[in-house]
Design a protein around this nucleic acid. Sequence first.
DNA 1: TATACTGTAATATTTTTTATTACAGTACAA
DNA 2: TTGTACTGTAATAAAAAATATTACAGTATA
Lengths: 134, 134
Amino acid sequence: MNGRFPIAIHIMTLLCYAKEQLSSDYIAGSLNINPVQVRKALKELIDQGLVLSREGKNGGYQLARSADIITLAEIYRSLKPEALLGISKNTPNPDCPVGRQIKGHLDQLYEQIDLKLERQLSATTLKAFCQQFQ
Amino acid sequence: MNGRFPIAIHIMTLLCYAKEQLSSDYIAGSLNINPVQVRKALKELIDQGLVLSREGKNGGYQLARSADIITLAEIYRSLKPEALLGISKNTPNPDCPVGRQIKGHLDQLYEQIDLKLERQLSATTLKAFCQQFQ
DNA sequence: TATACTGTAATATTTTTTATTACAGTACAA
DNA sequence: TTGTACTGTAATAAAAAATATTACAGTATA
């Protein structure tokens, strides 16, 4: 995977911690990355219904609802994750019994894994995660 | 993630299915990737103690033990996976309470997730996975 | 001693990720 | 009504990672 999940979690934790509207520049300062990257990440969180934005002067971002009814699973989902354990680019040989069937069985396995992960992430609210911060 | 897990599973399934020694060229033909890539993946599986190789003429690869005492968790471990949900390259701002602590709390979360995943993958043997193949 | 393998280094290519620039659109406030 | 400070997003560049390929040394067999 790439760094999108950690970044999303960082942003959501900040918004929860600050309890006020923050600008992408401010958030970028905490992450130490480019503000455009932050706005891209925020777009996913907005699309997922987790964050609200205000345009214009004095604009910024805030949580769309109380942190105790946001779970880490929702943050994870905002990334529209593909396959947790990876996808190979190759096109297996259809003349081989294993090559022919591997994708289907792997998909099945992945579905089970994803289900469990989502269940686990659902068990932690943003509030609970954020309260760990001093 | 990348395609290493699917490739490793594919290889192990082949070795289990074939019940005989296979060459990297043959395996590459089923995966439809380069034999060198296959040998690299096999090296990880050998290091993990899951596969045996024979050099020289009539050489090749076979399972190091019975498929019913190999679990998908061991195959997963052969990849020495880093963080399932990704690592961000940024160095968060140490002057920000969130930036300062995020890594630690994320690591903790990741450890829990990894534990559960390993537990889940441990529940499936290579034999069971392979028996799904017609 | 020819042959058919594995092991692995070196390199090239492709793909993905991350960073950056630029600017249009929007809302506030003087 | 206009300057200012934001968001939104397209376009592009740069860096990093993944994948593919070539080449060849080493090894076991017949």
